[in-house]
Write a protein that binds this DNA or RNA. Structure first.
Lengths: 146, 146
DNA sequence: GTTGAAATTGTAGGGTC
DNA sequence: GACCCTACAATTTCAAC
């Protein structure tokens, strides 16, 4: 246990928060059989331990004007890694960027307004390497955690 | 406006919720210059319109026992698509699954306990097609929205 | 962890522009 | 229609146990 006590109760609490991160401590307490202060204390510890890293809102990207999602593999050109890592933070279109093993070092998930914006983004990425783009048609699994 | 009124105020509210989805309506109101009831009303409408699809907690996967993340491309075998789409929902390890254009129809992001579990998962996926796996080394951009 | 009191927040009603 | 204000219910927080 020491620092990180991931018992059944904490797992239940995390499941509640995962289902609805705005659920009140009182309601979580009712579900897991704890008082509200007890839940609050556990959640605070999970935050302090870095197990909980934040709370996010999920949006329908299509309805906020970003209906086109794509996956881009980017084979970074020699000497471009550092500047890419710096610049990629600034692209609003980039939802995720992972450095992966294999020939294409970077894997990006992006959301854009339309084909024009995607093309523009690809052009910009070409400065750092060779992009290979696939459009996302649908997402059978969206963003599960734990 | 009609159904979907995404004005500056709503964007500000969404930015607050994105930074911290547990932020109180009162605090959001202070930030964006609105009363708590006004914020609550706008958020409720954003939910009803399906713009907000939920609130999620972000976890440090390593600290919950899933330190190994990977990206798997899966070239679905003929006739296996439907059963794959049905089964992929049940794999707890699969965080995301996207159907994409190109030769490899499916792109999965997974998190597992270690190499053994990854190997087992790959074996199971081979039932539905040809997987190509890349380990995630780091994630320069984690999960931005809007 | 629990209980109980104080501060804060959420919510519903009525009113204004 | 969107917003504010008021008042009450619920929640959060902090204390003591």
């Amino acid at each position: 246990m020491a620092a990180t006590e991931m018992d059944t109760l904490n797992r239940k609490i995390l499941r509640c928060l995962q289902e609805n991160a705005r659920m009140s401590y009182a309601e979580i307490g009712r579900v897991v059989g704890l008082s509200a202060p007890a839940v609050a204390e556990r959640v605070q510890k999970l935050e302090e331990q870095g197990i909980i890293t934040g709370y996010k809102v999920s949006l329908d990207l299509g309805k906020v004007g970003l209906p086109l999602e794509a996956v881009i593999s980017l084979k970074i050109s020699s000497g471009q890694l550092e500047s890419f890592l710096f610049q990629v933070q600034k692209y609003e279109e980039v939802l995720e960027c992972h450095r992966i093993t294999g020939e294409n070092c970077m894997m990006l998930k992006v959301a854009v307004k339309g084909p024009k914006e995607l093309e523009l983004l690809i052009n910009q990425l070409m400065e750092y390497g060779e992009p290979t783009t696939s459009m996302i048609l649908s997402s059978p699994v969206k963003a599960r955690v734990i």
